Simulated scan of single mutants.
Amino acid sequence: MYNPTVARLTFRALLGRRRALILCALPALLIVISVAVRALAGVDDNVTSDLLGGFALATMVPLIGVIAGTGAIAPEIDDGSIVYLLAKPLKRPSIILTKLAVAIGVAMAFSAIPTFIAGYILNGNSQQLAVAYGIAAAVASIAYAAVFLLLGVVTRHAVVAGLVYALVWESLIGNLVPGARTLSVQQWSLALAQKIGGGDIVQSDVGLPVAIVLLVAVTVAATWFAAQRLRSLTLAGEE
């Protein structure tokens, strides 16, 4: 269910010069801010948690998920080049799974690793915060990649829809409206960070068992729907 050729083409598309610059911008900003905060405020676990939770997990991770998830397939559908891939003797679910694997790898590389580095810069991994938020970012990247890959298949406005979800739902409504937090990938991943880093500093509104179930369910459902949607696409010669 993994095709190396599809993976290579997807990596090349995601890591093109323009998209790579965008992917690097937010992690670089996080690192710069972390260095500045450490220099000005010293080691402070609460400040570390606020920065990693408020900026890295709430803003950077979903935005990188948008770029990686939609960029893995949406441009090919928009410009019509997907027909060349669909014309090959490949199972369409394998195309989705391969592109999802690439999107997850890219999202993790540009979100989870910088989050861990930023946490280590801020407090030297005191209270396991760097590890906790790094793992939370990695887990969130999986769900985001699946959701935004699905958007890339079902709509030609995938980037806009993804940005609305990432900025409005996750960053704004998910932080301000208590009931909406239960349906937030950010809160689900925070439940894992809370377990690793302890509940005194990291807080989540969702219990860990529920968070794990929801993360798995959303990832599997989004992947399945994306495969079904791609399966329904027909080439002109097939009609």
Rank of each mutant, 00 (worst) to 15 (best):
28 A>M: 08
45 D>E: 15
60 M>W: 04
45 D>T: 15
68 A>C: 05
65 G>P: 10
79 D>E: 09
49 S>A: 15
87 A>Y: 07
94 S>V: 09
73 I>P: 00
53 G>S: 14
83 V>H: 02
52 L>F: 11
37 V>W: 02
35 V>M: 05
92 R>V: 06
57 L>D: 06
25 A>V: 11
31 I>G: 01
75 P>K: 15
39 A>N: 14
84 Y>K: 10
90 L>V: 04
37 V>S: 04
55 F>P: 01
97 L>C: 03
37 V>Y: 05
74 A>M: 10
97 L>S: 08
69 G>A: 10
62 P>I: 09
45 D>M: 07
83 V>I: 08
85 L>Q: 05
50 D>Y: 08
88 K>F: 00
54 G>T: 15
59 T>A: 01
40 L>D: 05
75 P>R: 15
39 A>C: 03
61 V>P: 00
77 I>R: 14
87 A>T: 07
91 K>G: 00
42 G>D: 10
95 I>A: 06
33 I>W: 14
54 G>V: 14
25 A>G: 06
19 R>D: 04
95 I>H: 07
95 I>R: 09
20 A>Y: 08
96 I>T: 09
79 D>T: 14
89 P>G: 01
28 A>Q: 02
90 L>I: 09
40 L>M: 03
87 A>V: 03
45 D>F: 11
78 D>I: 05
66 V>R: 03
48 T>N: 12
51 L>Q: 11
62 P>G: 12
67 I>H: 01
34 S>M: 11
83 V>Q: 10
62 P>N: 11
72 A>H: 07
56 A>G: 07
81 S>R: 13
95 I>T: 06
95 I>N: 04
85 L>A: 01
47 V>G: 02
64 I>D: 00
98 T>H: 12
64 I>S: 01
91 K>E: 01
92 R>Y: 04
50 D>Q: 11
44 D>A: 08
